[in-house]
């Protein structure tokens, strides 16, 4: 609010008007006042402003007496009870702050967070199971491959052995090879008790004679020439032979055919076909079952009636 200028208060505006510092409404108000008061206007127009110039050379003697000794300012000392009080307040504030945070965390966690975490756990468990399954599958596959490899090695062993033997055999001279074949044949024959010259063997005759003596009804009939019919004295021997036959017969009959014949009959030098035909003829082999006869089929016929009754 612009103060109205009049003859009483115009002096407080006069110095600003003379120095050019009166602006705006105050300036207009002053000009209105001056227009209404020409004597004041004339006074201000005739007024010349004089400014004092500071005197140079005025010195205050005694400055050193005014100066004080410079002392290092000590930091303000806070009484220890104030420190304890402040420390207590600080501790309480800190505890309150952390308690507030903890309570907020506990309250904010509950269901949502568990609901979010549970699927993750299930997925992790599933992933673990899948990984374990894969591991087991790989281990099984490795084991199978190892077994297959071992089988191949086992199968290759006899082949390798034969190959090795062939190599050794090939390295020998023809004469050595002939001798070797002969030795092998002899060993084989000895093991199989094969008599290549049955006609020269006299053991058949007594047997046939014994049968003839014990069974006169069949004296004139054609009797199996090679059957060794047991006597009372020979009962334990026969039983032992039968037991041995049984054990041998448990093996494929076709393979042990000659062994059976060896222990049961003494046949003349005949071919294997003839042997079987004879056995069939004697009732040892059922018709049409050549090569596949069980020992139980012929065991009864091998036991004499006198022993069978027992």
């Amino acid at each position: 609010m612009v103060m109205k200028i009049n003859r009483i208060n115009y002096e407080q505006f006069a110095i600003d008007y003379l120095e050019g510092n009166l602006l705006g409404e105050d300036l207009r108000e002053m000009e209105v006042f001056l227009s209404k008061n020409p004597d004041v206007k004339k006074e201000l127009e005739e007024m010349e402003l004089f400014y004092l110039e500071p005197e140079v050379g005025v010195v205050f003697e005694g400055k050193e007496a005014l100066k004080k000794e410079v002392v290092l300012e000590k930091p303000k000392v806070i009484p220890f009870w104030n420190k304890f009080w402040m420390a207590g307040v600080a501790a309480i504030l800190l505890l309150s702050f952390f308690t507030f945070i903890l309570m907020n965390n506990i309250n904010e966690k509950p269901e949502n967070e568990i609901a979010v975490e549970t699927p993750n756990l299930i997925e992790k468990e599933k992933e673990k199971v899948v990984v374990e399954d894969k591991k087991e599958a790989v281990i099984d596959k490795i084991k199978e491959e190892q077994k297959a490899f071992e089988n191949v090695i086992e199968k290759q062993k006899p082949i390798q052995k034969k190959e090795a033997e062939k190599i050794i055999y090939a390295k020998t001279t023809p004469k050595e090879q002939e001798n070797k074949r002969e030795n092998e044949t002899n060993i084989h024959d000895q093991n199989m008790n094969i008599n290549h010259f049955p006609n020269t063997n006299n053991t058949i005759k007594p047997v046939v004679q014994t049968i003839a003596e014990n069974d006169p009804s069949q004296k004139n009939e054609t009797q199996p020439e090679s059957i060794n019919v047991p006597t009372k004295e020979k009962e334990p021997v026969l039983l032992a032979v039968l037991d041995k036959m049984e054990s041998i017969a448990s093996e494929p009959l076709e393979f042990k055919k000659e062994k059976i014949l060896k222990h049961t009959v003494q046949i003349a030098e005949v071919s294997s076909v003839e042997k079987e035909s004879k056995l069939e003829k004697w009732g040892f082999l059922p018709e049409g079952s050549r090569g596949r006869v069980k020992f139980s089929n012929i065991k009864k016929s091998l036991i004499p009636e006198e022993f069978a009754s027992k």
Partner: peptide
């Protein structure tokens, strides 16, 4: 300001 105006005058 009044004192100064009067002083200058």
């Amino acid at each position: 300001k009044v004192y100064i105006f009067r002083a200058r005058k």
